[in-house]
Simulated scan of single mutants.
Amino acid sequence: MKKIIAVTLFALAGLGLTTANAWAHSGRTDKNGCHMDRKAGTRHCH
């Protein structure tokens, strides 16, 4: 039973290390998937 718990905790910890946060933002994109970043005055592509 202890081995099952240890393996489960190890797997959950591994998932926590491999996930990444994605920050969405508003703004329409053109046909190339780009748009202007008005604050920076630069073009931003996805």
Rank of each mutant, 00 (worst) to 15 (best):
C34S: 05
K3M: 12
A11P: 00
C45L: 06
R38K: 09
A24R: 00
C45T: 05
N32W: 03
A22I: 13
V7A: 14
T18M: 14
A24L: 06
K3R: 15
L17M: 14
D37R: 04
K39T: 10
I4A: 12
L17G: 10
N32P: 00
A22T: 08
R28T: 08
T19P: 00
R38I: 07
R38F: 09
K2L: 10
G14L: 13
H44Q: 09
G16W: 03
G14S: 13
C34M: 06
T8P: 00
N32K: 10
K3Q: 14
K39R: 13
L9F: 12
G27I: 03
H25C: 06
L17Y: 12
H46Y: 10
T18R: 12
A13V: 15
G16T: 07
R28I: 03
A20I: 02
G27P: 01
R28P: 00
M36C: 05
N21K: 05
S26L: 06
L15D: 07
H35N: 08
H46W: 11
L9S: 07
G16C: 07
A20P: 00
F10T: 15
K2Q: 09
S26R: 08
H44A: 08
W23I: 12
L17T: 14
G16A: 08
H46G: 14
M36W: 06
A20F: 02
N32S: 08
A20E: 02
K31M: 11
V7C: 05
H44F: 08
T42I: 12
C34R: 04
F10P: 01
D30R: 07
T19H: 02
F10Y: 11
G16P: 00
F10L: 15
K31E: 15
A40L: 08
G33S: 07
R28Q: 09
R38C: 02
H35R: 12
C34F: 04
K3W: 10
R28S: 10
L12D: 02
A40N: 07
K2F: 05
F10S: 15
A40K: 10
K3E: 14
I5N: 04
M1V: 13
K3T: 15
D37Q: 03
A24H: 00
A13D: 05
C34L: 04
A40E: 08
I4K: 13
R28G: 10
A11H: 03
L9R: 04
L17P: 00
R43W: 09
C45G: 05
G33I: 03
A13K: 06
K31F: 11
I4Q: 13
W23V: 12
K3S: 14
C45E: 05
R43G: 01
K2A: 11
T42Q: 10
A11Q: 05
H35W: 03
L15P: 01
K2W: 05
G27A: 07
H46N: 15
T42S: 09
A22V: 14
V7G: 02
G27E: 03
T42M: 09
K2D: 13
W23Y: 15
F10K: 11
N32T: 03
H46I: 05
W23R: 11
G33A: 05
G14D: 05
A20G: 02
A13E: 06
G16R: 02
L17C: 11
N32D: 12
A22N: 04
R38V: 08
I5D: 06
M36N: 07
I5L: 13
H35T: 07
L15Q: 14
T29A: 11
A40S: 08
T42R: 10
A13S: 15
M1E: 15
A22M: 09
